[in-house]
Design a protein around this nucleic acid. Structure first.
Length: 506
RNA sequence: GGGUCGCUAGCUCAGCGGUAGAGCACUCGGCUUUUAACCGAUUGGUCCUGAGUUCGAAUCUCAGGCGACCCA
């Protein structure tokens, strides 16, 4: 039984009885509140200004004292106070002597209302709209969260994001910054002749990354399909088709665990530039991210969870071998067998997983265990083992490695790029090796995409490719500790409630 | 997958084996310069769910649900 809701419904009915719908069709504001605050900053305390204005927004607080009331009305740009004086409101409505008690008793915090009035700065210095008329725009039937604790329940903040947005300016700011980052990135790419082309989300063969896909089904074709785990293989087909600079900024789906850094659906941008290599992509990466940071944060030195991060280019470049050697003393170039590498790792207390079946995979293990989390300032980690990078070109001078970098910031992988593998025969061998691992039981190993290989045989120019995790970048630029803070509606388990599913139906 | 913590009124929380509590919100009364308005009165509960221990469970135990954080 919800008394609060019933009380508010009674007020909605009372409005209807007075001939006013609790759900208006429209309203025409003359200003946004921030405009008024700015335009009348010069109005002195206690002064009035006879300019007629109309504002609309959500009622946030109400303070009624006898024959005078102060409400706070907030629109998207911020709050403004309403000054509601019984005598002058009644004077404006000679045929409705109840208008003051109507506005004070039929409204609640949370209602959307529109008001007409003039401007007044109160004796206490608060710019206010002195109300001459009001209209209910939308009656709220549910109470707002606690007016000064806000939404402390983290779960509710994610499940009912609309409440979080109403009461948390910081949350609103996070999503504004996210939108600004994305639009800045698109503009930057568009200005440099990169073409955004949408590639399929539904695919019969998910490829382009080591990840498990979501499975779905197309009824009319009776066709099993998966959601994409990357945009890579289709964007490369577009490069084969002659688009020399392409990108796609969009949603990726990976059927994996949930953590403060992982959401099953997330946003990436993949960028491909013909005739470029991974060195070019490093410059592109640091320039692009620094540009976005400047736009979103107003500078390239920012604070993340109490640590100063300097995103001013150029950023540190170091090979994975160098970094691992610096952190562990182990020179992986010197190892000639897995057994030798494994023994050396155990000697310095590194874990040696069964699945890491080569010197290269052990190198990556050592990197993840001892280096990754220490890369706080932006760092390009270069030259990965060929086994882990089936779509990257073999290194021009270092056997067993590929021309690949990953970008780490605050210990998190934030971007990944290659000199792309364009040799169709080498690509076939690499994908077949992946397929072999898959048969051996690795569910994340890639498959052989024959049409992609055919496209490479038609001929792909030398190309640099780059992927950036947008969510992690937004986390960085909004000082957010969890990916859920930067995704408006993160995936959560459905809330437990009375089952009305197939069981109950028998 | 493992560990730790949490779940009590609409919101924020206290209570930790002996009658279910506070502040705010809501309702009513008062109040023409408030902005966490104030003063007074009232109302409001599946203490996450289930089982167990006990004379007695919000409290202890076990299982489950949901979440947060840490680890893999």
């Amino acid at each position: 039984m919800s008394d609060l809701r019933e009380t508010r419904l009674d007020k909605a009915r009372a409005l209807e009885a007075l001939g006013h719908s609790p759900y208006a069709l429209s309203f025409a504001p003359s200003h946004r509140t921030a405009q008024l605050q700015q335009a009348h900053a010069d109005l002195a305390k206690g002064e009035e200004r006879a300019e007629a204005v109309a504002v609309a927004g959500r009622l946030m607080t109400r303070r009624v004292m006898g024959k005078l009331a102060f409400f706070t009305l907030a629109d998207e740009t911020g709050p403004i106070q309403l000054y509601i004086d019984k005598a002058s409101l009644e004077a404006a409505h000679p045929h409705n002597p109840d208008i003051f008690s109507q506005i004070t008793t039929l409204t609640d915090a949370g209602d959307w209302i529109g008001v007409h009035g003039t401007l007044k700065r109160t004796d206490r210095g608060e710019l206010s709209v002195k109300v001459s008329d009001w209209q209910m725009l939308s009656k709220s039937l549910q109470p707002l969260p606690d007016k000064w604790h806000g939404l402390a329940d983290v779960e509710k903040r994610y499940r009912q994001r609309y409440l979080d947005l109403i009461v948390s300016p910081h949350t609103r700011e996070t999503f504004r910054r996210r939108a600004l980052l994305v639009s800045t990135m698109r503009r930057w790419l568009d200005e440099r002749d990169f073409l955004e082309i949408e590639t399929p989300v539904l695919q019969s063969q998910a490829g382009g990354a080591d990840a498990r896909p979501f499975a779905t089904h197309h009824n009319a074709l009776d066709l099993p399909l998966t959601l994409r785990i990357a945009t890579e293989l289709h964007l490369k087909r577009l490069v084969v088709g002659g688009f020399e600079r392409v990108y796609e900024l969009g949603r990726i789906f990976r059927n994996e665990g949930i953590s403060t850094r992982h959401n099953p659906e997330f946003t990436s941008v993949e960028i491909y530039q013909a005739f470029a290599d991974y060195h070019d992509m490093m410059v592109l990466t640091e320039t692009l991210i620094a540009t976005c940071c400047q736009a979103v944060c107003g500078g390239t030195v920012i604070e993340y969870q109490g640590t100063s991060i300097d995103l001013t280019p150029p950023w540190t470049r170091a090979t994975m071998h160098e970094l691992v050697q610096r952190a562990t003393g182990l020179d992986f170039n010197a190892f000639t067998s897995r057994a030798e590498a494994a023994a050396a790792m155990q000697a310095v207390d590194l874990v040696v997983p069964e699945a890491a079946d080569s010197v290269g995979r052990l190198l990556v293990e050592a990197f993840e265990q001892r280096v990754e989390s220490s890369l706080i300032q932006p760092t390009f980690v270069l030259d990965y083992p060929v086994e882990n990078s089936p779509l990257a070109r073999t290194h021009r001078s270092k056997p067993g490695l590929v021309e690949r970098f990953e970008l780490f910031i605050v210990g998190r992988e934030t971007a990944n790029a290659f000199s792309e593998l364009i040799d169709p025969l080498d690509q076939r061998r690499r994908l077949e090796a992946q397929q072999e691992r898959r048969r051996a039981g690795d569910p994340e190993a890639q498959t052989v995409d024959e049409d992609f290989l055919h496209a490479l045989e038609v001929g792909m120019p030398p190309t640099g490719g780059l992927g950036i995790g947008i969510d992690r970048l937004v986390m960085l630029l909004t000082d957010s500790p969890s990916i859920r803070d930067v995704i408006a509606f993160p995936l959560l388990r459905p809330e437990g409630r009375a089952e009305v599913g197939s069981d109950a139906m028998g």
